[in-house]
Amino acid sequence: MLYPCPSHPCKHKGFHKETIPMEKKNLDWGNLGFAYMPADYSYVCNYRNGVWEEGGLTTEHSLTLSECAGIFHYCQEIFEGLKAYTAENGDIVCFRPDLNAQRMGDSAQRLCMPPFPEDRFVEAVKEVVRANAAWVPPFGSGATLYIRPFMIATGNVIGVKPADEYQFRIFVTPVGPYFKGGDTAITITVADYDRAAPHGTGNIKAGLNYAMSLYPGEKAHAAGYSENLYLDSQTRTYVEETGGANVLFVDKQGDLIVPQSATDSILPSITRRSLVTVAKDYLGLTVIERPVKFEEVLNGDFVECGLCGTAAVISPVGHIEAEGVDVTFPDGTETSGPVMKKLRATLTDIQAGKIEGPDGWVVKIL
């Protein structure tokens, strides 16, 4: 077994063999919330003078920045989210980190930030997970090690322009389920606000998009709803996504309906893309990816609805309520309907190693 060298935080390039086993942390794994708990190591790498430096692990979990750093003034910030977990055979693995690397590169280009090399991204994820192996929850606990790569502008900027220095970091934290109700269907509402402008930044994973959703999100929570459903901001007639997840529907024929955006303002969820493959290749479902009018939802054309993303995989939606809106999904009113249940079970079985997935989906770390 390989373990991190604690004497060289930030600079070490590898791991040293140790005879003492790395024991799991003494945590109540089955009752973890979805909250930040500092682990032992983070990963950090700086961009200066036009190049990414070597980078490495650090035990420092705080940042010290200039008051003029670009992140504070022009919001050059992007992030990703993925998970490491213990498979059924005891391996520590993560799921499709190459797609997170690719999406983060796309986000960086859109915000005039230097993309972190995709191969280095994947290796950094592996390195920080190995270093924090004691924080990876055991198989069957329902918990995972959440991995948060992010990049911010650290260089000083006064005029409106991109910064010239950046920092890429990854921290990890053990978490429980995103929605505590598990498979209990949630009720969502329809936002009066817009999430993203047509041809704007809705298709990248940038903090600025999520900042826009905070106020309507708090209003929804105060009214007793779990999430907001956003319609397209140009016509307010098409379903886009919620504040933190893509939307899936099942129609009366049992087909999986995946909303698309005519103005490219829906985030390309890795979980959604994986579920589409599972639906087609493992469950033999018909999958239709197209713009979905909210009128179809109001007319009762769909019997199931789910929100999909890294944190929750699929959260069933039983009801959508708003002023003049009262929609119930008959096949998933209280818990996941049959299609969403199969989709979630199949994908999580692939992730856990119970079912063999496509090549490259499950990446062994330890």
Results as ranks from 00 to 15, higher is better:
L82W: 02
N209T: 04
E356T: 15
T59R: 15
P216F: 04
Y282P: 00
I270P: 02
C94K: 03
I158L: 15
V93E: 01
D251S: 09
F95V: 00
I20C: 08
A262H: 12
K219D: 07
M212F: 02
I92F: 00
Q260C: 11
V136N: 05
G217Y: 06
E165I: 03
S226P: 00
A322Q: 06
L145W: 06
L82K: 07
D251R: 07
G243P: 01
F171S: 03
C45W: 07
I71S: 09
T263P: 02
P149H: 01
Y146G: 01
Y85K: 10
K354Q: 12
F302W: 03
S62T: 14
P6G: 06
K24I: 04
K13E: 15
I78H: 02
E227C: 03
E80R: 06
A220G: 06
T333L: 15
D331E: 15
A220C: 08
T346V: 11
C68I: 00
I270M: 05
V276W: 02
I158Q: 12
S265G: 00
I350M: 14
F249D: 06
K126R: 15
L267Q: 05
W361L: 10
R130Q: 11
A35F: 12
G202D: 01
D91H: 10
Y193T: 12
A197M: 06
P9I: 06
N46W: 08
F95S: 09
Y41F: 13
V129I: 14
A211V: 11
T189M: 05
G318D: 10
L214F: 10
Y225S: 07
K25G: 01
R169N: 10
G284P: 05
Y43D: 02
L256H: 09
T58H: 09
N209P: 06
P149V: 03
A245V: 01
M22E: 14
R344N: 12
M340P: 00
S213Y: 05
I204W: 00
Q167T: 15
I71F: 14
D119F: 01
H8D: 07
